[in-house]
Design a protein around this nucleic acid. Sequence first.
DNA 1: CCGCCTCGAGTTCT
DNA 2: CTCGAGGCGG
Length: 678
Amino acid sequence: MDVRARVEELRRQVSYYAYRYYVLDDPAIPDAAYDALFSELERLEAEHPDLVTPDSPTRRVGGPPLDRFAKVRHAAPILSLANATSAGEVRDWWKRASKFLPGDAPPPEFVVEPKIDGLTVVLTYEDGTFVLGATRGDGEIGEDITANLRTVQAVPLRIPLLPDDGLAAPRRLVVRGEAFMPNDKFRALNRLLAERGEKTFANPRNAAAGGLRQLDPVASRSRYLSLYCYAIVAQDGGTRTETQWELLAYLRRLGFLTPPDSAHIDSLDAAIAYGEEWMRRRDSLNYEADGVVIKLNHLATAQAMGFVGKDPRSAVAFKFPAREATTRLLRIGINVGRTGTLNPYAELEPVQLGGVTIERATLHNFDDLARKDIREGDVVVVQRAGDVIPYVVGPVLELRLPGAQPYQVPAECPVCHQPVRRNEGEVAVYCVNSACPAQLVRLVEHFVSRGAMDIEGFGTNTGALLVEKGLLKDVADIYYLRPEQLLQLEGFKDKKVGNLMAGIAASKERPLARVLAALGIRGVGSVVAQLLADAFGSIDALMAAREEDLQNVEGIGPEISRSIVEYFSIEGNRQVIEKLRRAGVRLAQERRAAEAQAAPAPLNGKTFVITGTLPTLSREEAKTLIEQHGGKVTDSVSRKTDYLVVGEAAGSKLDKARALGVPTLDEAQLRALLGVPS
DNA sequence: CCGCCTCGAGTTCT
DNA sequence: CTCGAGGCGG
């Protein structure tokens, strides 16, 4: 590949998108896509120094000031910050930085502030009067936006804003802050713009930039803006503060807003923990932020530690792992589910996201794919939903290759090549061939899985192999496998075959509800299967049931009834049941008398939800423990939930429980409630 | 008919 | 974990 051509292409693209972003406030591509282009250019230039030119966009920091605003030279250069993307990197930063601590420095303390995503501005006051407001610009020269900032409520026009006895205004004060648009204001503004048929903003940051850079301050959208101040750039007279924490308090007394959710903390580990805790809460906050800033509290010490380039040694930006990245979609593949649904997925050029390498992502269904107009070969934006499962947000249209074709929904199943069906009004596309090997593989996988027949020694690979070799034509064939057949297969020796046969034999004793769930009847999972087992007691009674009989069961409606009757009306399915019966699989409800009366039920009727990882109990163990005491465990938090059991790395359920005022328990409290010692 | 509460189904990576 | 949709109660 021709590196020189690539570098030139990247420069053209980066310059154009930077212009759209910085000058027009109208980004043409997502931030993550821009970042990807920029860092590729940086990397290539680092590897090939001979290709670097003075006019490369990497040689310029920030955007060019607009011509229409007057230019302003800053009193002191506006600094940047070193970045850390993990707790380990923060510790590394401090290990390096602390070598520069002066000998007489007090024990280190820190201030943690959110790193708000807005526009850095510099405000100048003379004899208590606001005289100049400027953008950051390139760090040395910014733009005069005094008129617009004047209309922002959070900018005090005089300091002290309120009478404060004994507090005199400094003769001259230059403070630095971040102008931003709170999330609620951003949504309100976009609603308004949409109503008027005007263009909406992509995110609060761009909206804030748009507000501040409007030429006519009266029409300015600055009433939607706010501003937090957090640093003094220059000061002449007034009160001197020794620490950052005191400085924030002093700014507040003068009438400035300071960053919310900030903390004064006496050890680095606690500061890191605070930052991590804060990151978990960030979705519930009213501002956008991409991390926290950890600063050394003692100002004179911070000053003495000096700089690395433009970055002060005494502070670090502790940023989130990116939640968004761009990469190329190599191919759109199709999975066949156990119910026959065809599900598209994306094969991606591997990309780092939130600390892991992503190379595949679900595309949900064909409607979704068409709505987003995702095509093979596109550069796409990938996010991790709920910080776990990656999904494709959409294509970057500006980077689409000329020949890219819209994706066509396949007319036939990619595995068995039978025609597909799509029911009126339904999203799903089905392969209706019940003999489709792909469906059988997934059904076998489901049948042997932990929630169903739970056959030990029988994993995903085993199932796929046995189907491929023709040893399984349906799930009941599992009970007719002979050791001598298995021994012929690659990688199957005495020991493994013995384990597998024992696992299969043991599974014949599973309760009826497990068997019903294992069959894979559409709409019948573990909960519905238990309802059916309790109501009918045996598979024969269930097979004899009519739709009306089924609907009489609490929790079973018309859809599931129809699905069950249809399942048993198919000859092949009835044969599977008979084969299971002949093999000795239990097909009737077992007696559970002892269990039912022995259990004391202090938790009768209470509903529990479990989230995160508990210290000693597995999720399954906690569930049975609660059920043995008469409680019920469900999956989602609602007003009806009595307790949320919280473990390590709890997710969105905890937020929801807090919002609804649902009490939470940790494992120890749960044990206490149940009277079970650890 | 609407709004909740649940359940089922599919999903990724280490 | 999230999404979609079934079931139920108001």
